[in-house]
Design a protein around this nucleic acid. Structure first.
Lengths: 248, 248
DNA sequence: AAGTGGTCTAGACCACAAA
DNA sequence: TTGTGGTCTAGACCACTTG
């Protein structure tokens, strides 16, 4: 199969035309028949080849471009991209939803709650100017009664003033925020660390045991909403990320 | 701003029409003016409101749907989605590229190389049937001469027969594969662990020090290509993931 | 200057699901 | 049954970029 199928008999089956075209072109690429750098026919030519309107071709190419399988440039045409660097969609689920889905019980306990003007550490973690009112929360997530994750959180009260009225004694602030506050940007940092004395005590694990630390910053447009650091014992959490070139 | 702008004077500026419409609708959603569950006007009505063709509206809505900000269903119409669960694009860069970008020198050393029929462990890790020929590689990545990551890898020789001829004595198999083999699916598992004796020795760190473990499986369509496990000392690696609702 | 992709139109028909 | 989104057409003009 070195030439494009000139015409496909209209599958009375199912797939829309642009999707068939997408699949046909994608096959050329992932099979290696069209290696990186290969120049594709122009949209006009593909439209003639496949016997459809140019917009239909454009939709198929748009999908391939979104998958980074091809690069499209005016005048220069469309070429097969170099294999993309490892990149994956990481889903970091809501802790409660995750545990409930796994059939565990869940509860949250507040260990400390303070409203204060941001000190230097707060300001740097949350990315606000010192003195901005913040809500500092320290809490523990439990699964089936056993410690599951330790949470340190800062909430920008300038962005989320209504959080000042919440006690968060049994309500996980993460869930509360997620349900109320739209967010536009999130950033995660993931690393490993050895449990220090405080963390070991809270999570009821030996000192120095490896833990997974997930830090998350969220924004609503330019405004910082919250900073959170979650610490999981190594054997209680595992991030799973999947990526498919092919569209759903 | 509770009503939609009925018409925008054609910005002689820059943005395409569908993008302006996308932005306008997105603003309604992230600002909270249209909460989750809110029903959007129909495409025909939006086309009238914005004074454009329905396909232009459809393109804007398609982009919003891809961001999961809205849900579109035939007959039922288009509604604002619930805030999405935490989900982020995780970029796991090629180790060498990452180090070079950071201004470090990089080298790879092969510690062990075997071609063998898959044993039970290989078969389970790589997801092939026992007896399938596999290439097993154990190696060390170094940055500025110091151990940076420990790698254990299995390559399915049925999928990548040409790997059998490679020595991989100084060439990182990850990079070699990435440059040659197209892949369609990848799965990552990330967790923390305490260094055991073997890892501590290889990475020249104390035993029990926390490490980040990244396991990756890759597929070409249904066929398994490789399984790799990378172990980084906690202070030498940090995954960073960003997510934006807004399109680039 | 000319060819390419990027966008847009004003229609059309269809499939689906809710009423 | 009917309104909705999903797809498609056969054109069109424009912006960009390369030759």
């Amino acid at each position: 199969m070195t030439a494009l199928e000139p015409l496909k008999p209209t599958d009375s089956g199912a797939l829309p035309r642009y999707r068939e075209i997408y699949d046909a072109l994608r096959q050329k690429i992932v099979s290696g028949a069209w290696p990186a750098g290969h120049k594709l026919p122009s949209e006009h030519e593909l439209a003639r080849t496949f016997g459809c309107a140019r917009m239909t071709i454009s939709k198929a190419l748009g999908a391939l471009a979104e998958q980074r399988l091809i690069t499209r440039r005016r005048r220069a045409g469309t070429t097969v991209s170099a294999p993309r660097p490892q990149e994956s969609v990481l889903e970091i689920h809501d802790i409660e939803a995750e545990l409930v889905a796994a059939g565990s019980t869940y509860d949250y306990e507040c260990l400390d709650r303070q409203v204060r003007p941001a000190n230097a550490d707060d300001a740097s973690a949350l990315g606000v100017t010192a003195g901005t009112p913040v809500l500092s929360l320290i809490g523990l997530h439990r699964a089936d009664g056993r410690p599951h994750a330790f949470e340190e959180r800062l909430i920008n009260l300038r962005a989320v003033p209504e959080a000042r009225r919440e006690r968060f004694s049994r309500t996980s602030p993460g869930r509360w925020l997620l349900q109320r506050i739209p967010w536009t940007d999130a950033e995660h940092q993931i690393c490993a660390l050895n449990a220090d004395a405080a963390i070991a005590r809270r999570l009821e694990i030996p000192r120095h045991k490896a833990c997974l630390s997930i830090e998350r910053n969220t924004w609503l447009d330019e405004q910082r909403i919250t900073h959170v650091r979650l610490i999981y014992p190594c054997d209680q959490h595992r991030l799973i990320a999947r990526f498919r070139h092919q569209r759903a």
